Amino acid sequence: MARLFHGFRCPCCEPAVARRREVIRAGLGGLAALALTPAVAAAQAAGGGARVLRIRRVQTGESFAGVYWRDGRYDRDALRRLDVIFRDPSMDEVTPMDPRLFDVLHTIARHLDSDEHYEVISGYRAPETNAARARQSRRVSRVSLHMSGMAADVRLPGRQAIAIARAAADMQIGGVGLYRRDGFVHLDCGPARRW
């Protein structure tokens, strides 16, 4: 049963969403790859081979640098390690992240020819954390994809936030939010849109 908070259903608690994430987590990477936007799918097909991510969590200093997809499948161990790094540190709550988010990050880093670690400012947010942030700022959505493990707020050293946002927007990769004043970009694996 989906939990209600502030009059909205929590998307991460919907049974259908939970089942879908479990299927993805079970290693059926092919299903997730089919759901990619055409631009991401084309970029992945052109690159072939392994998909690599370099991540550093700002709040905890934890990092990951390695392959998360190879031989047509997501690496379960790598996904578990990434889930921990992308957790909600204020609640110390881990959720299965949508691997398509990692595909978005990989594709953008490759497009920008960057081998730097993404600095992750926000990954998964528990509904309580998101609600608290929404009360503090109108810029935080009350139904954020962060609560579904489908979004991250990131920086990429050596690249301006606007360059990351433009690359993602030009490639029509998910949601792209530019927070120029704060120096980061929101990226998600939801429908293509920008703000």
Rank of each mutant, 00 (worst) to 15 (best):
T60Y: 05
E62F: 04
S63C: 06
G66T: 04
G66Y: 06
G66R: 06
Y68G: 02
Y68E: 03
R70P: 03
R70F: 10
R70K: 11
D71V: 02
D71A: 13
G72E: 11
G72V: 10
Y74T: 14
Y74F: 15
D77T: 15
D77C: 06
A78W: 14
L79K: 03
R80Q: 15
R80V: 12
R81N: 14
R81L: 13
R81E: 13
V84A: 15
I85V: 15
F86M: 15
R87Y: 00
P89L: 14
S90F: 12
M91V: 12
M91E: 13
E93K: 12
T95G: 09
T95F: 13
P96W: 12
M97K: 02
R100N: 09
F102K: 05
L105R: 00
L105Q: 01
H106Y: 06
T107Y: 01
T107W: 00
T107G: 11
A109N: 08
D113L: 02
D113R: 10
D113G: 01
D113I: 01
S114Y: 03
S114G: 07
S114D: 04
D115L: 05
E116T: 02
Y118C: 02
E119Q: 08
V120R: 07
I121S: 06
I121W: 10
G123I: 10
G123F: 12
Y124A: 02
Y124Q: 07
Y124C: 05
R125W: 09
R125V: 03
A126F: 06
A126P: 04
P127D: 00
E128K: 05
E128C: 02
A131P: 02
A132M: 05
